[in-house]
């Protein structure tokens, strides 16, 4: 798929996965790349950007085997952002579907 398409919506996808439950980098990369064709590395710059914008916070948690993992947790601002993005995306996707003659 067109990489310009993906760039715009990946933030939203990452927040949506985190809304469900806290997660760590490898797991997030895995969940996203299973649904959307992208390089595993893609999520890390996004997570970093969203941490600096206050949409996610991080904490370290021991893992069963090996060193502690860095977990990401969605903040109330992140949830608000996700809600807004989701609404905007649905309206946009609906309009595009109508224009290209998909689901009406």
């Amino acid at each position: 798929m067109n990489s310009q398409f993906k760039k715009g919506v990946l933030d939203m996808c990452v927040l949506a996965v985190l809304e469900d439950k806290d997660s760590y980098g490898y797991d997030l990369a895995d969940s996203l790349s299973r649904m959307i064709q992208l390089a595993d590395g893609t999520v890390y710059p996004i997570l970093r950007k969203m941490a600096s914008e206050g949409y996610v916070t991080t904490y370290l948690k021991e893992s069963q085997n090996g060193p502690p993992r860095k977990y990401y947790h969605i903040t109330p601002e992140g949830k608000k952002k996700l809600e807004g993005d989701r609404k905007e995306w649905r309206e946009f996707a609906e309009a595009v579907d109508k224009l290209i003659g998909g689901i009406s």
Binding site: Y24, G25, D27, Y44, R48, G66, R69, K70
Partner: peptide, 15 residues
């Protein structure tokens, strides 16, 4: 920070 994150990704993958 970035080195730690990507390093952790490698460790998880190996695990």
């Amino acid at each position: 920070d970035i080195m730690d994150d990507i390093g952790e990704h490698f460790d998880e993958g190996v695990a």
